[in-house]
C-alpha cells in the first residue's frame, strides 16, 4: 500500500560504528583526558543518545553523560559531535560517518566525560541580565490580567523556546576568546523580555545590562550560535535588532 512502509530494510548489513568519547574526570587528579573508542552496531533510526545508552548499558557503565527528555526539549545532552555543538538525542547516527568523536561542550565547567555544568553558567547569566519580568506596579491578585495580543504572545513564545542547552555558547567564537561575553543565550533573553509588555524596563535599563563589549557590542556576527542552535531560534535577527536599539541609546545622551 504505502511504499515507504514496505521499504526493504536489511539489504545492507548494519554499520559498525566506532564512537570515540573524550573521557576525563576532573575530580580525580590521576585522570588524563583521552579518547576512548567504543564499537557498536548501528540500528535503524539510532540517535547518539541511544548509542550512548547502549554503550553505558552493555560496555562501560562509567561513561558520564547527561540526558533527561531524549526529545530535544530539556537541553541536557548537548555535546561536541565531531567538533560541532549539537544535541545527542536529536542527532541520527546515519547522518554521521562510521567514526564519531564526542567531546563535552567547551566553555562550561566539566563534571566528567560528556557531562558539563551548564546550569551554573545559565543561572549566573540569568542573575547578571536579570531575566525576569520587572514590574513595579503592585499586583492585584484578584483582578484579571491584561490580555495580550496573540501575535505578540506568539513572538515572545518563539524566543522563549530556548532550552538553555549551551550550544550557542559553544559555537560562539567570541565566547571562546572572552569568557565574560553574554552570548546569544543572554541576548536572546533580553530580546524576549524587551518584547514583553509586562516588563517595564526601558532600553536605557537594558543598555545597563548589555551595552558594552561583553554585551551586544562584543558580538562579531560570526553566527556560530545561529547555525548550531538546535531549536532554530532566529538569533541573528534578534542580536541585530538589539544592536540597533542599543546603538540608539549610545547616541541619546
Amino acid at each position: 500500500m504505502i511504499s515507504i512502509l514496505h521499504r526493504k530494510t536489511g539489504t545492507l548489513p548494519p554499520r559498525r560504528l566506532c564512537i570515540q568519547v573524550l573521557r576525563h574526570n576532573p575530580a580525580d587528579p590521576a585522570s588524563v583526558p583521552h579518547l576512548q573508542p567504543y564499537e557498536i552496531e548501528e540500528a535503524e533510526g539510532m540517535t547518539l543518545f541511544i548509542a550512548l545508552n547502549e554503550i553505558r548499558a552493555a560496555q562501560d557503565p562509567s561513561v558520564q553523560f547527561d540526558f533527561v527528555c531524549r526529545a530535544g526539549i530539556c537541553g541536557s545532552c548537548a555535546m561536541l559531535i565531531d567538533g560541532r555543538p549539537g544535541l545527542a538525542c536529536r542527532t541520527l547516527t546515519r547522518d554521521l560517518g562510521t567514526t564519531i568523536t564526542l567531546a563535552p561542550l567547551p566553555f562550561f565547567e566539566l563534571i566528567g566525560d560528556l557531562s558539563v555544568n551548564t546550569g551554573k553558567w545559565m543561572r549566573g547569566t540569568a542573575e547578571r541580565l536579570q531575566t525576569w519580568i520587572h514590574d513595579a506596579t503592585p499586583v492585584a491578585i484578584d483582578t484579571l490580567e491584561t490580555p495580550m495580543d496573540p501575535d505578540l504572545a506568539e513572538a515572545i513564545y518563539e524566543l522563549d523556546r530556548c532550552i538553555e542547552c549551551g550550544c550557542c555558547i559553544a559555537g560562539c567564537g567570541t565566547a571562546q576568546m572572552r569568557e565574560d561575553f553574554v552570548g546569544a543565550i543572554g541576548l536572546n533573553k533580553i530580546a524576549r523580555f524587551r518584547l514583553d509588555p509586562r516588563d517595564q524596563r526601558s532600553d536605557d535599563d537594558f543598555y545597563e545590562l548589555i551595552g558594552d563589549d561583553d554585551g551586544v557590542f562584543g558580538c562579531m556576527s560570526l553566527l556560530g550560535c545561529h547555525d548550531v542552535c538546535p531549536k532554530q531560534l532566529p538569533l541573528q535577527t534578534q542580536i541585530a535588532y538589539l544592536r540597533r536599539k542599543m546603538a540608539v541609546i549610545g547616541f541619546s545622551s
Partner: peptide
C-alpha cells in the same frame, strides 16, 4: 486589598550609568 510586591524595576541605588562609548 492584598497586593504582592513584585520585583522592582531597578535596585534603588544605581551606582553609575554605563558609558555610552561602547555603542
Amino acid at each position: 486589598q492584598l497586593v504582592i510586591h513584585a520585583p522592582t524595576t531597578t535596585p534603588a541605588r544605581q551606582p553609575r550609568r554605563k558609558s555610552r562609548w561602547p555603542a
